[in-house]
Design a protein around this nucleic acid. Structure first.
Lengths: 205, 205
DNA sequence: ACTATCGGATAGTGTTGCTGTCTATAGTTT
DNA sequence: AAACTATAGACAGCAACACTATCCGATAGT
């Protein structure tokens, strides 16, 4: 276990904690107080840290998506679990009908089930804007939808590019979680790029 | 204050907490133990709840971006504060040069400063993929970059569409925070749409 | 005069993600 | 064989966070 700790850079106490929480499978027992850990444990640890640190998931959420990787349920079901895990729980009754209608307008032509977590989350965001007196976002949101469609195509392409089923499953889960972080990061960079192109000389205070 | 509480749906104790933390400016004092709260307080409360619940910010982070709204520092500076607040702090020394180079390839042609928070965060994500043995993302990431560019254009368009400076500032801050959530939500919906189009009949277990 | 409410201060709560300590045992070195 | 180190497993403790509850003295409205 000391090796596992030094190889991963994670303290022994933390590894024990992940074992306790069921995030990491126990090592192969070689005695009452001895266990052997293989490369798959190291890999799993890296998945865990990626989900927690980069993806910002909680321990409980990471547990769910890791279970989704381990169980073989078919890709669409795995997608569903991953999506629900990373999305906020939203009560449909708490949403204004206007916001929901607004989202459905944007999503018109898409085949999306009514309880898709993204649909509800998007409605929540639009409702927040509406409460802040920004009712007309018709110039803004469609651009987001078009970009989201392009990204989703890229996501599915990448999953298709994986050869074996296990690799596909992992790409579904990890891609769902880390894809959010990746896009947000690239948006920051793109904002600086576009901003500097539009306003060449930033005003000096 | 009771009115403010019922109007916003936020418990009095919580409003007091926000006052203590400096998120909400004090009401206009009308006596040693009396204060008046106006519509601007209600609006501010809605901003706070949006940042915390929808944007997922911490109290400290919300404080920073709210200060950015209040101070008038020029749009590019406000953008910078908002970006740094919502981005994870990443130590450049902890990043592998390969991951950084990979990001810079994707960002080639963009005018992005070396310490742009998005550049570092994107490198962190790519490094995580590399550690998981997914080295070749050249079919995936460029699509993200193109989409991010389109979204950034839409963001700046929307800021430009605001007339007064204060409204622009608020759109910069709120748009930066809630835009992430909006895009992530629409990506979920788009994934279901694309997935159902590509694999019409999900396998029944 | 009386009662409800106010602002302000202080302390307490539940959750989360670890971290430190302890014990009994097992391997390893001398 | 004795000394030493490392291990698994259980348990308690801790710091940060976002509230929440209680108390207090003063005052506004009736």
């Amino acid at each position: 276990m000391a090796q596992l700790s030094t190889a991963s850079g994670i303290p022994v106490a933390t590894i024990k904690y992940y074992l306790r929480e069921g995030l990491l499978p126990a090592g192969e027992r070689s005695g009452p107080n001895q266990a052997l850990y293989g490369p798959e444990h190291l890999r799993r640890l890296r998945v865990i840290r990626g989900l927690l640190e980069v993806g910002g998931l909680s321990i409980a959420a990471a547990h769910q998506v890791i279970d989704a990787i381990d169980s073989d349920l078919g890709l669409s079901h795995t997608f569903d679990i991953a999506q629900r895990t990373v999305s906020p729980q939203i009560d449909l009754a708490a949403l204004s009908p206007e916001a929901v209608a607004q989202v459905d307008t944007v999503l018109s032509g898409w085949h999306v089930s009514p309880d898709n977590p993204g649909r509800l989350a998007a409605a929540r965001v639009l409702q927040t804007f509406a409460e802040l007196g920004q009712p007309d976002l018709s110039g803004w949101v469609p651009g987001y939808a078009a970009a989201a469609l392009a990204v989703a195509e890229a996501d599915l392409d990448e999953v298709d590019a994986r050869s074996d089923r296990e690799s596909k499953t992992e790409m579904v889960v990890v891609g769902t979680v880390l894809g959010d972080a990746l896009f947000a990061a690239l948006r920051r960079a793109a904002q600086e790029h576009v901003s500097s192109r539009r306003y060449p000389a930033p005003p000096n205070p």
